[in-house]
Simulated assay, not measured.
Amino acid sequence: MPDEGFEQFVRLRYTELLHTAYLLTGSLPLAEDLVQTCLLKIMPRFERIAEPLPYLRRAMVNQRTSWWRGLRRELLSAEPPDDPRPDSSGAFAERSALVAELARLPQRMRAVLVLRYWEDLSEAETAELLGCSVGSVKSQASRGLARLRELLESSDLRSGR
């Protein structure tokens, strides 16, 4: 049975973890599965983990990569995880387009962008979580942002904006 500290952590951080997982997977059901799988894995040793949030982020990136290698294909959804209100400004459409194009990026590049810009981690923290160099994070972020711009511009041209 989980201890009180674990339950409180899950109550406080679940939504944040779900958003990160959604950006990593592109699908709400897969995001929920990813968070649940990783939480179940750390539950028995939760009290021994000094910083559970970074640990879980790393676990989610690793688990997602493991799933991707097993499936060898992407399962995506156009629906974001939260239920937005009607938006006359077009922000919802822009966000949906961004999430859709983010899902087209290679897994490692996507993980770098999610950790750096969604989770607002430093280059050093991102490198540590992904087990790579800071230079690798910088180059993946730079290439990923450039690729996202290209994808978004080409989708704008296709839609006639």
Rank of each mutant, 00 (worst) to 15 (best):
M43G: 03
D156Y: 02
L148K: 03
R110C: 12
A93F: 01
Y22H: 13
L105E: 07
A103D: 01
T126D: 07
D3W: 04
R85E: 14
E47W: 06
S139C: 02
L56R: 14
V99H: 09
E123K: 06
G26I: 06
S159P: 01
A146I: 00
E47N: 14
M43C: 12
R161Q: 02
E51F: 14
L71H: 06
M43T: 04
E128W: 06
E7S: 07
R57E: 11
Y55P: 01
R158T: 00
P106M: 10
Y117F: 10
V134R: 11
A78N: 03
R57D: 05
L39K: 02
P106E: 15
Q140S: 13
R45A: 06
G135F: 05
I42L: 15
Y14W: 15
P54I: 08
F46L: 11
S139K: 10
E32Q: 14
L151G: 08
W118V: 08
L76V: 12
G135A: 05
M60L: 08
S122I: 03
V99W: 12
P86V: 12
L102I: 11
T126A: 14
R58H: 13
E123A: 08
E125C: 04
E74C: 04
P52L: 10
L30I: 04
L71Q: 09
S88A: 15
S89R: 15
A146W: 03
N62P: 01
K41S: 10
Y117R: 12
M43L: 12
A78L: 05
R72N: 08
L151V: 06
A124R: 07
A127W: 11
M60C: 07
S77F: 03
R57Y: 15
L39Q: 02
V137G: 01
V35E: 05
P2C: 09
R143Y: 13
R58A: 15
R149V: 02
R45T: 13
E128P: 02
A127Q: 11
I42S: 09
E128I: 02
E16M: 09
S89C: 05
E128S: 11
S122E: 04
R116L: 03
R147V: 01
M109S: 08
D83I: 05
L75N: 00
A50H: 11
S66D: 13
S154M: 07
D82I: 11
G135R: 06
A31Q: 06
R95C: 00
C38E: 03
S96F: 00
S159N: 04
R72L: 07
E32Y: 03
V35P: 01
R11K: 15
L75G: 00
S89D: 11
A91D: 06
E150F: 07
E4L: 12
A100T: 10
C132Y: 07
L113D: 01
P106S: 15
L113N: 02
R85S: 12
L34N: 05
E51C: 05
K138F: 04
L115W: 08
P106Y: 10
L145T: 05
T20R: 09
S89T: 15
W67Y: 04
L145R: 09
R108S: 05
R64K: 08
H19M: 13
E125S: 14
M43V: 04
D120C: 01
T20S: 10
S139Q: 10
K138Q: 10
A93I: 01
L157F: 09
K41C: 02
V10A: 09
H19I: 13
T126R: 08
S133N: 01
W68C: 01
F9R: 14
L121G: 03
S77T: 05
M109N: 01
